[in-house]
């Protein structure tokens, strides 16, 4: 039934704001709005159809927190009972002292600075976010907390889904080819820990390639080729 209605673009086409994508019985997905039965894009992005749902995968844009997101942020301030964390979103996030670590903190006896100080990078999880209020974070799970080793790479947040890949294919490829431990924050910070700095550089190079070519099909194969070539050169 859907097939008979007009569609003006095909999968993977680059579209811009205001562009008429399709007419009729399709449903608007992300970055698509419907007006008088017509679907328009509201961002610069790549068109993706998914069983009657029209999506535009944006090529740029801010990080909008979602509850449950794993993020990496920098402590920028400390208040009486919480840490202020920059997670590259429109609003700064708060990490309450009661959520700051698995071991509870006694505010009467201990200084908050003992745990994290201004300038520290944290791995945290978003526990609440309402559009008009600041998001709040938790570090009360295994694997969350202060980053003490390795390096951090910053990429645009919109490229994170591509870096992870379908069913984590891209990120597992990078991990297995370089032997590095890689933690991807949904806000576009990537934490890499490798045996030596060269391995971490290799990850950075692969990530840069993914960011630049995120909108071109067949990326996983190209990245695999690149990593294999580099490794051969090294050995």
């Amino acid at each position: 039934m859907c097939d008979t209605l007009p569609v003006y673009f095909k999968d993977w086409d680059v579209v811009v704001p205001g562009e008429l994508l399709a007419e009729g019985n399709y449903r608007p997905g992300s970055n698509v709005y419907k007006e008088d039965g017509k679907l328009y894009s509201n961002a610069v992005g790549i068109l993706k159809f998914n069983r009657g749902v029209v999506n535009v995968v944006p090529l740029s844009g801010p990080y909008i927190p979602k509850v449950g997101d794993l993020v990496i942020g920098e402590v920028i301030d400390i208040t009486a009972s919480s840490y202020v964390v920059d997670i590259r979103a429109p609003h700064v996030a708060f990490l309450n002292a009661s959520e700051a670590s698995v071991k509870p903190l006694n505010l009467h006896e201990e200084d908050l600075r003992k745990l994290y100080d201004v300038g520290d990078m944290l791995v945290a999880k978003v526990i609440s976010f309402e559009r008009a209020f600041n998001p709040s974070l938790t570090c009360k799970e295994k694997g969350l907390g202060k980053i003490t080793k390795g390096s951090i790479i910053a990429i645009p947040a919109v490229k994170v889904p591509r870096l992870i890949g379908r069913r984590r294919s891209m990120i597992s490829l990078i991990k297995s080819e370089t032997g590095c431990e890689v933690v991807v924050g949904q806000n576009g910070y990537i934490w890499v820990v490798g045996e030596n700095p060269e391995d971490e550089d290799l990850v950075a190079e692969a990530v840069r390639r993914i960011v630049e070519e995120a909108h071109v099909a067949g990326l996983t194969a190209r990245v695999m080729q690149m990593l294999k070539n580099k490794k051969r050169k090294k050995s």
């Binding site: 328009y40 509201n42 610069v44 844009g61 919109v158």
Partner: peptide, 11 residues
């Protein structure tokens, strides 16, 4: 604005 990825109805 479009380059910044800010959602717009149209250019």
């Amino acid at each position: 604005l479009a380059d910044a990825g800010i959602p717009m109805k149209d250019l």
